[in-house]
């Protein structure tokens, strides 16, 4: 009985999990529009270091954010084996460059733990929660609002 209630609560949602370097991250599935392989991007002048460039998404110009660079893990040298996760937040569409998409997972709201206070190198500002998985891995939930380049551009 209690089990059923748990399953039916709205406190569970699906997350897309992906890997950047050796770390696992996840974002809510409802912002993800599609996942595609890496294609060469056009370099944007004056762009912040973490903006790899812009790609053509069926006629729309979409900026690609190098998550590794954004999170302070060093710039990615993209290859066709890398993935671009296309997300839509508000009216903005952006591609997120990651190493690989691992799985789609249903996570209970209760499993979301606050980010521990660790002397951080800039990463923790982009994470809202951490989730410990049964196999011992730790998932980091990305805060898209702070990761995305922002309309008025952080151009230098």
């Amino acid at each position: 009985m209690q089990q059923m209630i748990l399953q039916n609560t709205a406190n569970q949602s699906d997350f897309v999990c992906f890997r950047i370097g050796e770390q696992d991250y996840c974002i809510e599935i409802d912002v993800v529009r599609e996942i595609r392989g890496w294609t060469p991007a056009t370099v944007l002048p004056y762009a912040p270091r973490h903006v790899t460039g812009v790609i053509n998404l069926r006629g729309a110009v979409v900026a690609v954010v190098d998550l590794a660079a954004r999170l302070g893990l060093g710039r990615t040298d993209p290859t066709p084996r890398h993935v671009v996760i296309i997300v839509a937040l508000g009216s903005q569409t952006v591609g997120l460059l990651a190493d690989v998409v691992s799985e789609i997972m249903r996570i209970d709201e209760a499993a979301m733990k606050p980010v521990p206070d660790v002397a951080s190198d800039g990463t923790s500002g982009f994470i809202t929660n951490v989730i410990t998985l049964e196999d011992g891995r730790m998932l980091r939930r990305l805060d898209l609002g702070t990761v995305l380049p922002g309309k008025d551009s952080e151009a230098a």
């Binding site: 002048p45 812009v54 006629g59 900026a63 903005q92 309309k151 008025d152 151009a155």
Partner: peptide, 25 residues
Amino acid sequence: KSLEDNYGAVPGISAATILGDGRIA
């Protein structure tokens, strides 16, 4: 194609276009 829809204004660049090979210029 507008750059501002999904990114923002870039100094010295007015907009973007898509070339024959599908890449953006």
